[in-house]
Design a protein around this nucleic acid. Sequence first.
DNA 1: AAAAAGTGATGACTAATGTCATATATTAAA
DNA 2: TTTAATATATGACATTAGTCATCACTTTTT
Lengths: 242, 242
Amino acid sequence: MNKINSACALCENKNCFIQKLPSQRLSWVDAKKYTVCFPKDQNIFWENAEVNGIHFIKNGKVKVFSSGLNKKDKVVRLAGDGHIIGHRGYGAEQYPVSAATLSESTICFIDNGSLYELFMTNPVFTYTMMMFYSQELRKSEQRAKYNSQMSSKERIIAALLYAKETFGYSQTDLNAQILNVYLTRSEIASIADTTAEEVSRTLTILESEKHILKKGRNIQLLNEKKLLDLIRDYGIYDNADS
Amino acid sequence: MNKINSACALCENKNCFIQKLPSQRLSWVDAKKYTVCFPKDQNIFWENAEVNGIHFIKNGKVKVFSSGLNKKDKVVRLAGDGHIIGHRGYGAEQYPVSAATLSESTICFIDNGSLYELFMTNPVFTYTMMMFYSQELRKSEQRAKYNSQMSSKERIIAALLYAKETFGYSQTDLNAQILNVYLTRSEIASIADTTAEEVSRTLTILESEKHILKKGRNIQLLNEKKLLDLIRDYGIYDNADS
DNA sequence: AAAAAGTGATGACTAATGTCATATATTAAA
DNA sequence: TTTAATATATGACATTAGTCATCACTTTTT
């Protein structure tokens, strides 16, 4: 967790939201931001903690989740390079969710005050940010819709494709389409709104149907298009863009 | 559907978002907006139609819904006086949802171009709007969370309380807490992510438990607090504000 | 290497809730 | 008013998916 600030202008991550600011503004951000490298499986912020700003993922893998009372945690979102986290809390007193790293991750933080200054002086930036929220809202409700209409099997497939969408395939073995993230059965279950047992069973079925291959802790998607076809009726990826 | 424009400055609805603009800006809006009175059960906009702007409910009752393929429509949101509709679509090509009136409603419309001008020249307005989106996102995910953790009975109670939250009680009989909106069993089911039959059954049970009273087409909440207690564990109304 | 902790797979069982069928109200239309 | 159309209530049944229990397999710790 060392502070490792560097100049936004030189940042290799051009998907970052901050890059949408006028370039002369970037050095101002450099002075305000706070960049930290988190090891794997570390909380970035906690549900119900005070909201102090927004986090920008320079690189890494993050899950955003909220805790049910009796039941297990619910993974609300996966986020990777260039994505924002903590924006759900922005404008509220406390975070409605927690965030934790799924792998070592470098994350930049900008505090509320600095953000407000940016928002007040850069209408296009603010507008872009607002459009991002609008899009997130659409996605959230899209997901709510298919959660209520899909079978557990379909939701599990959707969760696998979502993980692929967010983190892509492993770069070590480019030909094999191996998900570039390790998620426990419980975590997949949580994304897919079901139980770990159901995920185990379903993955076994999907493997027997030659849709996936379980490779140790990792999952290979043998035919992404076919998987997509199994759930396409719901129009999930119609307005996908992240 | 007559155009019935009037001055925003004189509008009795002070909850409207437009009222957050500097007062000298309101007459500018007057020239741009388009106010229409819709009869009951009329579509305001359609899913997949081109998005041309945002609608502001001056007064009335509206449901926002999206159509599943095989299954029935899903009610995404209820909206009343002062609420915005169509903001989900803003920034996208097409509306992800439809909106229809549940009662006669007067609705003001502002086109994309005018909105953009407002957003570029009124940072506080834009910021407020962004915070609204942020809040809607929190609510949407809060709802997704409890949809996945509550029983159907609890979700139906939550739907009733949501209708109360949005439209309040009937003004004709102030002492009786009669929901100020008529929703079919199917519509309630759609809000509560269940079936019309389950709603019928559950309402009968809730009546036998003296929590509600079915009065013809309307529903009376006999003890709102008790109903709230039945679902409070989920923290649904913790950050409620609409 | 052995032990312990965590994770995954799978069978048996249960409970919740969706589906279907039918009867009954209620509202709208003829 | 009669008829038709729509909405609601309720029973019987089917099915999905959750729960519990057990075993096997991995990874980490000692």
